[in-house]
């Protein structure tokens, strides 16, 4: 069963938009739960997105995409 990779909802205050600055894992790569997957930025502050499960990563929102809290940016299956 696939698990969504989502933008965490508890990293910053308010409903500010974020941008995916870097994917540190590649599409199709095997990842382990807790591994660092991506960096996202809000007003010059960077936050980390980690893998919610073991499996193969599918990236659905590329670097430079504008995202909000809770948005799905990838899938691990």
């Amino acid at each position: 069963m696939a698990t969504d990779v989502t933008v965490p909802t508890d990293l910053w205050e308010g409903d500010l938009e974020a941008v995916i600055t870097n994917w540190l894992a590649s599409d199709g790569q095997a990842v382990k739960q807790g591994a660092l997957l991506a960096e996202i930025m809000v007003e010059k502050s960077q936050f980390e997105v980690t893998a919610p499960a073991d499996g193969t990563l599918t990236i659905t929102q590329a670097a430079d995409a504008i995202v909000r809290k809770g948005d799905t940016i990838g899938r691990i299956g």
């Binding site: 600055t21 870097n22 960096e39 960077q46 670097a63």
Partner: peptide
Amino acid sequence: QGMGWLGTEPGAT
């Protein structure tokens, strides 16, 4: 640097 607000060059990562 991969910092976003400074521009992004994927080839550096």
